[in-house]
Design a protein around this nucleic acid. Structure first.
Length: 629
RNA sequence: GGUCAUGUAGCUCAGCCCGGUUAGAGCGAGGGUUUUGUAAACCCUAGGCCGUGGGUCCAAAUCCCACCAUGACCUCCA
């Protein structure tokens, strides 16, 4: 049975004439109207029976709970299916569905069966207002909610997900059904992830702490004049972003990714893109220009695939790695999902694809990228062994045929992982994994991810010439070794907040901080000496600034602390005379005598192999505007 | 869209329940004093259509209604 739920402000319908012989009798020819209701457009299919009807009424009840609505109109709508039941059976099942629904709703109506009807409906404008269901005897398919709609067919075509089974896969290959797995104390995050994915339960209701931190530290903020989920990044945040991006890009380049740049908007009528566009219309930003409907990309896939299609590729060139860091990818996520930097509508995403010759090469390449992801994430300051949990999803067929390979991934990760198994392939990929960061309010956010895509090579007509001189479609891997850059910042801030909660000193990685060392002159007469130090440190690619404001030393120290600056040097007469400096270390809460050379060495040793960018603020604090507290 | 919050100075907030001088504080900003030794020097000043619109009242930041904005949750995540 196929159903399309529409949460409507009102519906008006009027039977016009009998359409088929078996049409219901005694139907008054009069316009009917109902307000604030759920319209269930329904098509009964050939294999449907009383059970499907009963399952369907349960689905309607659930939807009613969801949108808090207690009126239902069952509206026969044959156009939903190309596999209709015979009219006689269909009417019976519709009647039985009606009976079922009456148990759950005080007001239930059914439009006459077998009649040509005119109808007028106003669908509500919220994300859940359109919802499609397919109910069969075997399993239940449900469709993700769609936007209030203009295009009904898109809602029907939209992606269906099957009910999947959940497991925990241990290192060594032991696969345990979720329900039978007992989590030990160290696995509380894995448990949280599982609960989050599986039962969709939350631990607590509060604002994630990174939202306050991103403002307080002058990293990022909401921009009320834009669409929500489009953030502004202050100088410190912009620097941090640039550094993260540059490091990620370098590692991908070392791995072999060829960096490219592709357009951010695409024609929604383009034949290759059309199916994608119609699949997720609710999540697109649309731009109308010159009578064309363009949509903003939600990933770098299109650009790279359209590009690869025009390459001349030999099997000798594979695996072929293409990389782009999108600034931006756009996803018009539902407003209620947007929180601080966790999920945005415009975000920067490293997106690296690899075209592979066959499954064998795919698996080798996949492992390589798994290592790359582990490494990158770790270098960014997010520890794979402490801060993230892994989830892996695949079809049962892929598992049966590639058990060893999957176990290899788990053993590389080194801890049990959450597994979702699909009975069939419903997406373009056969396997995907992701690293999930669990934040302080028990929400999971995916960072690194990789997928094995067996569909888009053909869809985009990307071909390579194989050894036997025939053209073939490659398998495509989709990897982001870090996940969205903004989300990395979110994870780092949440991690720092966790430290804070545990009574430790919160900090961000030294190589990402705007000021690595602050010079604090005791009085204005010491500023000259600070400037000499400044030149020396800057020459060694250390970001340094001078607090030359007319404030007390105590005040300047305090500000340095609240800005989370690792190192401060108070410069007074003693330092000018002796050349011995006293280094204040915020994280270790200590002070010790050192020389300038030692400081340079120490900082260099901590940021080794990380990119450097100069300070993105005036070097003298007296020249800086107040950006945030 | 639903539920629940919130909206007062650049920022963080108090005042609202129980209506009544000229709406307060801290931080920040401007001016001055101070030239400072490891987490907040001192003094002065300027900042407010109390989200918007209605209503009740002699009187509304305060009570009522509507709207708008923002957030959390519901839901979901190519």
């Amino acid at each position: 049975m196929r159903m399309l739920f529409l949460h409507a402000d009102f519906v008006e319908y009027e039977p016009i004439s009998k359409e088929i012989q078996l049409a219901e009798e005694g139907i008054p020819i009069a316009k009917k109207r109902m307000d604030d209701l759920i319209v269930v457009l329904t098509a009964v299919e050939s294999e449907d029976d009383e059970n499907t009807a009963s399952d369907s009424s349960t689905e309607i009840r659930k939807y009613g709970d969801l949108v808090k609505c207690d009126q239902v109109l069952i509206y026969p709508y044959a156009h939903l299916s190309s596999n209709l039941a015979s009219p006689k059976v269909a009417l019976q099942i519709l009647q039985s569905l009606e009976m079922g629904v009456r148990k759950f709703f005080p007001i239930v109506a059914r439009a006459p069966f077998g009649w040509t009807k005119s109808f007028n409906i106003k669908v509500k404008g919220h994300p859940l207002a359109e919802n499609a269901r397919t109910i069969t005897g075997q399993f239940k398919l449900s469709k993700s909610p769609d936007k209030s709609g203009n295009d009904e067919s898109t809602a029907l075509k939209a992606e269906e997900t099957v009910r999947s089974s959940w497991h925990i896969l241990e290192v060594g290959g032991h696969l345990v059904p979720f329900a039978e797995y007992s989590f030990n104390k160290d696995q509380s995050n894995l448990k949280t992830l599982t609960d989050y994915e599986f039962s969709k339960k939350r631990i607590v209701d509060e604002i994630p702490p990174h939202v306050k931190l991103m403002k307080k530290l002058g990293i990022a903020d909401y921009e009320p004049a834009s669409d929500s989920g489009n953030m502004r990044f202050y100088p410190k945040g912009k620097l941090m972003k640039s550094l993260l991006e540059s490091h990620i890009s370098r590692r991908i380049s070392e791995y072999g990714g060829m960096e490219v740049e592709t357009p951010i908007m695409y024609d929604s009528q383009h034949p290759t893109l059309q199916s994608y566009f119609n699949r997720f219309p609710a999540r697109q930003y649309n731009v109308f220009s010159d009578n064309r409907q363009l949509f903003l990309r939600f990933a770098a896939c299109f650009g790279q695939f359209l590009m690869a299609k025009d390459f001349q590729i030999s099997y000798k060139n594979l695996p072929l790695r293409l990389y782009e860091l999108t600034r931006y990818s756009f996803r018009r996520e539902k407003s209620g999902e947007l929180v601080g930097l966790r999920r945005l509508r415009a975000f920067s995403m490293p997106d690296c694809h690899a075209l592979c010759k066959d499954l064998n090469q795919t698996k080798q390449e996949f492992l390589k990228r798994f290592d790359l992801s582990l490494r990158v994430l770790n270098e960014l300051g997010i520890s794979p062994s402490e801060d993230v949990e892994m989830a892996i999803r695949f079809t049962s067929q892929f598992y049966e045929e590639n058990k060893n390979f999957i176990e290899q991934l788990v053993s590389k990760f080194g801890r049990p992982v959450l597994v979702e198994i699909w009975p069939e392939r419903f997406f373009y990929f056969t396997l995907k994994w992701e690293f999930n960061f669990i934040d302080n309010i028990g929400k999971a956010a995916a960072l690194s991810t990789d997928q094995i895509d067996v569909e888009n090579g053909e869809r985009y007509n990307i071909q390579f010439v194989d050894e036997d001189n025939t053209k073939k479609f490659p398998i495509i891997l989709h990897n982001s070794p870090s996940g969205a850059v903004e989300r990395v910042i979110y994870a780092l801030l949440e991690k720092a907040a966790r430290y804070s909660k545990l009574g430790k000193v919160p900090f961000l990685p030294l190589w990402l901080t705007h000021t690595q060392i602050r010079l604090i002159p005791v009085s204005s007469t010491h500023i000259d000496f600070c400037e000499q130090l400044f030149i020396e440190l800057t020459k060694n690619q250390i970001r340094v600034d001078i607090d030359d404001r007319d404030e007390s030393v105590g005040k300047k120290i305090r500000d340095s602390e609240t800005e989370w600056i690792y190192y401060s040097l108070v410069i007074g007469d003693n330092e000018v005379k002796s050349n011995q400096l006293v280094l204040r270390d915020r994280v270790n809460k200590s002070q010790h005598h050192v020389s300038l050379e030692e400081i340079i060495k120490m900082i260099e040793s901590q940021i080794v192999d990380k990119p450097y960018l100069p300070l993105n603020l005036p070097s003298h604090l007296s020249r800086r505007p107040k950006i945030m507290n």
